[in-house]
Computed example of a mutant assay.
Amino acid sequence: MRLLALTYGTEGDTRPLAMLCHGLIGAGHEVTLLADGGTLGSAQALDVPHAALEGDIHDEVVALVSRGNGVAAASSGLARMALQHVRGWMRQA
């Protein structure tokens, strides 16, 4: 089976998917992981095929968190960021 795993966020979002992809590859599946370029270290270490999503997700997340406007504001900001990038991400997928 050919699978694509896609996430946007921090290393904490990407690392579990890299482990899942690694397990799926071990079970004979063809898997590619798309995530923020700065969070793909675990995929590289596990020899999981991967590619960086367009955009600088890490810097956008850091900017949201540094504003300190609370969970609701951060959630809204992440939703706006996803909407801004979704066309490009789907093109990559």
Rank of each mutant, 00 (worst) to 15 (best):
G77P: 02
A51L: 06
G77N: 01
V61H: 10
A72C: 01
L78I: 00
A51T: 10
L46R: 08
L78A: 09
L53I: 01
V48A: 02
R80L: 03
V71C: 05
A73K: 11
Q44K: 15
A74P: 05
E54S: 10
I57E: 00
D47I: 04
H58K: 14
P49T: 09
G37T: 12
L34W: 11
L40E: 08
G38N: 02
A45R: 08
L34Q: 00
R67Y: 11
A43N: 13
L46I: 07
G70A: 07
V71N: 09
A52V: 06
Q44E: 15
D59W: 04
D36F: 03
V62D: 13
N69K: 13
D47Q: 14
T39L: 09
G70H: 02
S76D: 07
A35T: 02
P49G: 08
A74H: 14
L46H: 14
L78T: 10
A51E: 05
H58S: 14
A51Q: 09
S66T: 11
S76T: 05
S76A: 14
S66I: 05
I57A: 03
A72T: 08
E60T: 04
A74L: 12
G68D: 05
T39F: 15
S66V: 15
G38F: 03
E54N: 00
G55D: 01
A73T: 07
G41N: 13
G77M: 10
A45P: 05
G68R: 04
A52T: 01
S42M: 12
T39N: 03
A51F: 10
V48E: 04
L40Y: 02
L64E: 09
G68Q: 03
G38A: 08
A79S: 09
E54Y: 01
Q44M: 03
S42P: 01
E60K: 08
A72V: 08
S75I: 13
A63R: 10
D56I: 03
L64G: 15
L64A: 10
A63Q: 05
V71T: 04
R67P: 14
V61Q: 08
G41A: 14
D36T: 09
E60D: 14
S76F: 06
V71E: 06
S66W: 04
A73I: 09
A63M: 11
H58R: 15
D56G: 06
A51I: 00
